[in-house]
Amino acid sequence: MLSKIAAAAALLFAFPLTSAPAAAHEARAETLPLAQAVHLLSSAAESRDGYQRSSFKHWVDADRDGCSTRAEVLIAESRTKPTIEAGCKIVAGEWFSYYDGVTLTAPGGLDIDHMVPLAEAWDSGAHTWTPARREAYANDLDAQRSLVAVTARSNRSKSDQDPADWQPPLADARCTYAADWVATKLRWQLAVDDREQTALTELAAGCGQESVDYQPAP
């Protein structure tokens, strides 16, 4: 045991805390019960002042592989191998829109929904971000909950509303939706207003063992 302690001390002397590996500073993933995760959200009044959709540049090709963020989501969420034509044009696949329980095989009927809409993100803290961070938010492929392929009809019904004013028409989807919403807000450190927090708390109370997993955004 002493030899192990001595070895550890030697390593600490050789590599002081100020030069710790970058990995030690990476944000760790968290998994929490939904009700507990809701209580972690910070509360603040919201303001839409100055919002423009163009403040969030999207659908970009961040990894320069020829596929936009929209295409990347369609490829990732298709339940069958998608048919992809030149220029990363997705022409067929199979997608399940969990908001309304609809299955589609043609991508034209799908929207890629920002789980927390761009306008809501702006209201909740993104108005203070740099353009680069807003672009990262609008094209977040590193968290499965951030972007979701759903029917255009359900997405446009949702628009920029939060759970106090809109929830999925399919009742069985609402716990998943609440968890996805909370995970996205925690990941990006976005606040909630009072009505939104009340709605999320009420949803969580009826969602049993629903959990939230998220990793803070870089």
Rank of each mutant, 00 (worst) to 15 (best):
residue 151 T to L: 02
residue 125 G to S: 04
residue 16 P to H: 04
residue 151 T to K: 05
residue 83 T to N: 04
residue 197 Q to N: 01
residue 201 T to E: 11
residue 159 S to L: 05
residue 138 A to W: 11
residue 68 S to M: 09
residue 159 S to W: 11
residue 213 D to W: 12
residue 114 H to C: 09
residue 196 E to L: 09
residue 21 P to H: 02
residue 131 P to E: 03
residue 132 A to Q: 05
residue 27 A to S: 09
residue 212 V to R: 01
residue 71 A to W: 13
residue 156 R to Y: 03
residue 128 T to V: 09
residue 173 A to P: 12
residue 6 A to L: 12
residue 217 A to Q: 00
residue 82 P to Q: 05
residue 161 Q to M: 11
residue 102 V to L: 04
residue 7 A to Q: 10
residue 116 V to Y: 13
residue 80 T to P: 00
residue 140 D to P: 09
residue 168 P to E: 06
residue 190 L to V: 00
residue 178 A to E: 07
residue 71 A to R: 07
residue 23 A to P: 12
residue 153 R to D: 07
residue 145 R to I: 13
residue 213 D to G: 14
residue 196 E to V: 10
residue 140 D to H: 09
residue 13 F to I: 10
residue 68 S to T: 08
residue 134 R to Y: 03
residue 183 A to Y: 09
residue 135 E to Q: 12
residue 150 V to A: 05
residue 32 L to S: 05
residue 210 E to L: 04
residue 202 E to N: 14
residue 61 D to H: 03
residue 217 A to W: 00
residue 21 P to L: 01
residue 163 P to W: 00
residue 1 M to R: 14
residue 131 P to L: 03
residue 57 K to I: 09
residue 115 M to R: 13
residue 77 E to T: 03
residue 78 S to L: 03
residue 214 Y to A: 13
residue 175 C to V: 04
residue 91 V to G: 01
residue 179 A to M: 07
residue 178 A to R: 07
residue 24 A to G: 11
residue 216 P to K: 02
residue 107 P to S: 06
residue 102 V to G: 01
residue 155 N to I: 00
residue 190 L to R: 02
residue 134 R to Q: 10
residue 11 L to D: 08
residue 1 M to V: 13
residue 45 A to Q: 13
residue 35 A to I: 01
residue 183 A to V: 09
residue 216 P to G: 05
residue 50 G to K: 04
residue 135 E to H: 05
residue 181 W to M: 06
residue 110 L to H: 01
residue 137 Y to Q: 10
residue 67 C to P: 05
residue 44 A to K: 01
residue 161 Q to A: 13
residue 92 A to F: 00
residue 200 L to F: 04
residue 143 A to E: 05
residue 139 N to P: 14
residue 9 A to Y: 09
residue 190 L to P: 01
residue 169 P to F: 03
residue 138 A to I: 14
residue 138 A to G: 05
residue 63 D to A: 06
residue 206 G to K: 08
residue 73 V to P: 03
residue 206 G to H: 06
residue 159 S to T: 11
residue 114 H to N: 08
residue 184 T to E: 15
residue 191 A to W: 03
